[in-house]
Each structure stands twice: as structure tokens, then as C-alpha cells.
Nucleic acid binder design. Sequence first.
RNA 1: UCCGCGGUAGCUCAAUUGGCAGAGCGGGUGGCUGUUAACCACUAGGUUGCAGGUUCGAGUCCUGCCCGCGGAGCCA
Length: 430
Amino acid sequence: MKRIYIEEVSQYKNEKVEIRGWVYNKRSSGKVRFLLVRDGTGIIQATIFSPEKDHPLFQLFDNLTQESAVIVRGQVKEDPRAPGGYEIAVNDLETVHIAQNYPITPKEHSVPFLMEHRHLWLRSRKQHAILQIRWEIIRAIRDFFDGLGFRLIDAPILTPSACEGTTTLFETEYFDQKAYLSQSGQLYMEAAAMAFGKVYCFGPTFRAEKSKTRRHLIEFWMVEPEVAFATLEDIILLAEDLILFILERVLTKRRAELEILERDPGPLEKIAKPFIRLTYEQTVKKLQQMGSKMLYGDDFGAPEETLLSQLYDQPVCITHFPAQIKAFYMQPDENNPEVVLGVDVMAPEGYGEIIGGGQRIHDLSLLEKRIEEFNLPREAYEWYLDLRRYGSVPHAGFGLGLERTVAWICKLKHIREAIPFPRLLYRIYP
RNA sequence: UCCGCGGUAGCUCAAUUGGCAGAGCGGGUGGCUGUUAACCACUAGGUUGCAGGUUCGAGUCCUGCCCGCGGAGCCA
């Protein structure tokens, strides 16, 4: 008898197989018992028939509780009445472990309760589907960059100094010094790009922001490509291709999961190059016409992001921001030094910014000046300035927030479901 | 951090003006030969978040605290 996984069941029609898993749910109707078994790859209905009321399999079945671990052996049958179209006619049932009072029942639960049981919630159908899609997106991102000849260069997580202001950094002890958890691998990727040409890093980042919204996590994953000799225009094209590659992959390989999530694939299928392009100035004018009170020089707030996503069903690339609202390393536009060559890509359907990036300053004296203007500790940036001393070239890159991308593609109400174990302002358990 | 809302059975919620703390689900027992969050009957299950106060009487009103949820700012 062959031990198989539920996702392979259609290849074993009428064969006898063994499935190892957990009880998802059970039902009974007199002389027929139905056991829904999940094994991590899917859920299948196992059936037991007998005219004998005290059949030994019935006794085993009756003792099983939700999430008990079982080994089921029997024949695969195609049956339209079974969820998924296939079921197992059981002739042997082995109990591995009886679960006692599993807390997540097939009924409704509140968000706080489910978050408290996140370690178990992962077993539920929708959470499982979301994390399958997350995995597919991660693979797509790696395949995309590897396929283009990018080198994966890992950025450090413990960093020696505040790169973009200390208020949002997690501080920790580093023997007799202080260290900070990384907010971004970008500066290290700039060094790597000068060594390898085109690079990316993909890892967790940490922001000690006391933000409490559906779009924020304290710990989140970001993929950050950086390309030597690239301009703003080059990386906008790269960002478009990346997003389309991810969408194509999920739409072809994770249809079933999108269906479990009741996510209409229509809006995702419509997305195509080129994305909408607007300068910051054009965007502000448009928003003001729509009734927003924001002024030139303000950053976009949540209401503005919502307004924008109502206007377009394509991602929107906003460029040419006023220098003062962006980071110190942003390259000024040569036609208008008041604005910088940065880009934010806003996902449609109200999901807001999923990408932030741009062209970096490559001129040593300009970068020194900016470090001074932003009141940053010059010593901490000596290594970064070195990149402008030894073969400096124009270069650009961006960061894509993984969880925001997952939330958009899965159309989640809250980003906390886009990561297995979310770290939030008021939650670090489990 | 600020603004708003909430905490009652394992879970989801109800409880009229301050007047006997209840239902569904889940658990247990029994029934049903194709169930789809199955269904039917019976059954057990409570320090009403914590501390204090008002009152003949507090789940309900007041004060403080704890915990969480929604939103804002900031950001990916």
C-alpha cells in the first residue's frame, strides 16, 4: 500500500492508499460515517459504511475528536458527493493521537481569539491558503531575480547605527556597544551592487513604529534589488516586470487557493504594462481636485491612498517627490533639484504603497552635504561614502513589501494574516 | 502616542429603567444508511477582565488599572 499526500489523490483512482493526517471535521448518519482528514496538502473525505452498529471502525471513529492525528488506509473513489470529487473508502483506521478539546471549532471566532491561537489557526483552510500563496510569491520573486542574473546577497540584521532616524529602530545590546535591528538592507545592497552589478536581498526587517493600522507590521519581509548603472526609469520597468511575474505565477499555480479565499481573480488578471505614471505634483493636483486638503509638500495619508486607488485599476507609480519628504540618499532631478528621483508604487483596490525606491546619490560632495542637512552622524556613514570614492556610478533600487503584496493578491482585510506569526504593536504572542 | 469602541460559560453573543445570569456552537450521552459548518433529543458547564466606590440590591452606574479591537500619524 502506498502512502500518498491528498494533493496527489487523483493519480490513484481505485487504488489502495495510506494517508496520514489530522481530523478536520466528522459527520455521521447512522450506518455511514464521514471523516474529513487534512494532511497539509489538502482535505479529503474518508467514508466508513457498515450495517453492524458496533463495527470496530465505528468505535474508532466515534473516539476521534477534531485535530486528532490519524492514519487512514483505503481505496480512492471518485464521487461527486464528496467535497473535492474524491473520497477514501476506509478499510483501516489507526489513531496516532487523540486531541483534547481543540479550541478552534468550525464556527465563528473573534480576531483576538484567533490571534491568541495563531499557532493552531494556521491549520484552518483560509489561513493555509494564504500561506501557500505567500510561499508561491516568495518563489516567484526569487525565480524572477535569479532568472535575470541578479545575485542574492544577504544583508545583516544587526546593524551598528541608525540609518534613517533612531525613533523607529529596535535597540539591543552588542557586547559593550549598541546595535539596531535592520530597517532595510538597502545601504548594504548599494555596496553589493558595486561588487556584483545587480543584486537583491530578501529578509526580515524591523520597524519600532507605534503604528496600529491594517497595513503595518513591526516585523516584515522585504525584497530589495539594487542595480549599478541603473536610473529611476530602469528600476520602474524592473518593478513592473516583477509585479507582473508574481501575478502571472499566482494566477496560474494558485487558482485553488484564490478560490478558497473567495478572491475574484478578475482585477489581478487585468493588470498590464505600463502602469499609471504620475509625478508627485500631478498627484497632489488630482487629489486636491477630488477634495483632498493635502498641500504640496505633504506626504500622502491613508485617505489619499484610498482616493488614488479608486481612480485607477492599475498600479500607480508616483515619482519626483519634494526632497524634504524623502530619504537623504535620493538623487535630485537634474531639471529640478527641488525634487528627487524616487518612486512609490501603489497597489490597486486600496492596498496602498507596496514598493518604494529610486535612484541614489552617486556624487560624494552632494551626499556629504545631505548627511549634514539631515543631521546624521557622519562617522556611521564613512563606509557608505566610500562607495562614492571608489568608482562611483549612478545606481538605483527599490524595496517591495512582501506582506503588503500578499495582502493585496489575497485581498485580505488586514496584513496580519499575510505572515505566519505576525508581530504587532500590542501582540508578540505566540 | 492620540481619538473611538469593547471585555458575561471553552467559543460567538443576549440579559428592558439598577431587580431570579440565558441561547447557539463546542464537550458528554443516545438516535439516524450519503453527510457537506449535517441534523434530532437529553445533559454538564459561571469569581460577568482586576481593584475600589454608590445602592436595600450592580453584568448594568462612578473612579482607577489591565488587556484587546477599529482608526489616525509614520511607512513597505
